[in-house]
């Protein structure tokens, strides 16, 4: 993605880069980006936050899930410039190896992964899922749209946008449940 700022051979009157300000994991970041750069590539290639993974780059796998304004999205299907001024939360903000976030600890405890490639996306999506359940957002498996309650079925449906090639699904569901139950006490 080299751009040719001083190159005269193109007819396009395109600005080569745009200014984008993001707050990433609480820290203000200023970037000059080609408008084509996805939020995912801005995080990984420009801010060197490589915890967020690229699986498909087309919204089909969930590996790139981050929170923007507290809500989960696929960072591969957003341009960074669309998020100028937004707050982005990535896996890097959650915990450290010595001091894991409860969701990270639960994934370890419950064996919620094998190769680990999908895991950052799974964890960010799981946090989004718990928040959406908390806020009473219904899902496809919610029997009564007006009564949203935690269940393993709800978690399975809500996490269906996160593919795990190692098929750690049953243990991911257990990990999310353990955090939910922990949070209840």
């Amino acid at each position: 993605m080299t751009h040719t700022t001083s190159h005269g051979s193109t007819d396009l009157q395109l600005p080569r880069s745009v200014r984008v300000e993001l707050t990433v994991n609480g820290q203000p970041k200023q970037l000059e980006l080609d408008p084509r750069v996805s939020l995912l590539d801005a995080l990984r290639e420009h801010l060197h936050l490589t915890g967020t993974k690229k699986g498909c780059d087309h919204g089909q796998c969930g590996a790139c899930t981050v929170l923007v304004g507290g809500k989960r999205l696929n960072s591969c299907l957003s341009l960074a410039v669309m998020h100028d001024g937004d707050e982005v939360t990535t896996i890097e903000s959650l915990g450290t190896p010595d001091d894991l976030h409860p969701m990270q600890a639960a994934f370890v405890e419950c064996d919620g992964f094998q190769c680990g490639y999908c895991t950052p996306g799974q964890i960010m999506s799981a946090l989004g899922t718990l928040d959406e359940l908390e806020r009473g957002i219904p899902s496809h498996v919610t029997a009564d749209l007006n009564t949203v309650e935690y269940s393993d079925d709800e978690v399975r449906e809500r996490m269906s946008g996160n593919i795990c090639r190692c098929a750690a699904y049953p243990n991911i569901v257990r990990a999310v449940r353990s955090v939910h139950e922990g949070g209840q006490e």
Binding site: G59, R72, L73, N74, L77, T142, S160
Partner: peptide, 16 residues
Amino acid sequence: LSRAILAGASGQIRNR
């Protein structure tokens, strides 16, 4: 309408 939307895509995609 709620049901149709919730039958589509994923939570992440529906948020956007």
